[in-house]
């Protein structure tokens, strides 16, 4: 078989596989888990889109994937930024593609995400669920990699001048859940998302009217209309840090002192890593 025929054969297989995928989808012959995670849809539809985005548009560089466990649970804690929570989606695709076991990151999202039609279903199908202790503990108990951004809207909705300054970490509910299940915490620093939609102003009355946590004004939005939704092509750096152990602390899960201490420790690690990565980068858009 010559090279041309071999290539054609690949296409034949691709077409057959795409058609069979389509048939399975249309006849409902696929499985979702109890949280609504649709692994097949995520792998074959969501990740390819995100892959193009993080590889070609953001030229993402990833390091420290070895700090993630090969199997078993871990809580991945990251900094949140960029007006829309694009960093969470990119992180899950990056982790999946770079992890040797191709693991899925199960994101914990704000209530608002699950209040919105369509968005809520996309979040569930891609492996997300509501950020609440029962769900977090259930996922960790099942041995999943769980992703959380403790800054929440304080992180994504901050002014551009506050870029790469970690906001408050809330009540540290994520730490309590990790302690209760003995799950190690893997801090992750994400650089580049701040520049995708630099928020220059927040129109508070409009945000209140639309029941949103903020209404962003960026250099391109709302001036360019839908075109303003295109993220600026910043250069992204993602670094996974060494895990913070939580074993033997299960009894301290409701001790605020231990919880706040550990949350602070994680926050410090992320802030230091961010500072180092930002200092080492020549220009937000170069490279």
């Amino acid at each position: 078989m010559n090279a041309v025929e071999e290539q054609e054969d690949i296409w034949d297989r691709r077409i057959a596989s795409a058609l069979s995928f389509l048939r399975r989808r249309l006849s409902g012959q696929y499985e979702i888990d109890e949280f609504g995670f649709d692994a097949e849809l995520t792998d074959r539809v969501f990740y390819p889109v995100l892959r193009a985005l993080y590889r070609d548009w953001f030229r993402t560089e990833v390091s420290g994937v070895g700090n993630l466990p090969l199997s078993g649970p871990a809580l991945v804690v990251g900094n949140h930024s960029g007006t829309v929570a694009l960093d969470a989606l990119v992180l899950s695709a990056v982790l999946h593609d770079h992890h040797p076991a191709r693991r899925h990151l199960r994101l914990l999202g704000a209530d608002l995400v699950f209040r919105m039609p369509i968005v809520s279903e996309l979040a569930r199908k891609s492996g997300g669920t509501v950020a609440c202790n029962p769900d977090a503990e259930r996922l960790m108990h099942n041995g999943e990699l769980v992703g959380v951004f403790p800054e929440g809207f304080k992180g994504v909705g901050k002014h551009y001048s506050q870029r790469y300054q970690l906001q408050r970490f809330g009540r540290g509910g994520f730490v309590a859940a990790a302690l209760r299940t003995g799950t190690p915490i893997v801090p992750v620093a994400i650089v580049g998302a701040e520049e995708t939609y630099p928020m220059l102003a927040d129109i508070k009355p409009l945000a209140r009217l639309l029941k949103l946590p903020y209404f962003p004004v960026t250099p391109t939005f709302p001036w360019l209309g839908p075109l303003g939704m295109v993220p600026l092509p910043s250069k992204w750096l993602i670094q996974f840090c060494p895990p913070v152990s939580t074993t033997g602390l299960a009894d301290s899960a409701d001790d605020p002192l231990v919880v706040f201490d550990l949350a602070d420790q994680v926050r410090e690690i992320i802030q230091h890593t961010l500072d180092r990565l930002v200092a080492g980068r020549a220009d937000p858009f170069a490279g």
Partner: peptide
């Protein structure tokens, strides 16, 4: 409710 956990146990 939107804030409900994904899976209910008897004590939810």
């Amino acid at each position: 409710s939107f804030r409900d956990p994904a899976v209910f146990t008897e004590d939810t």
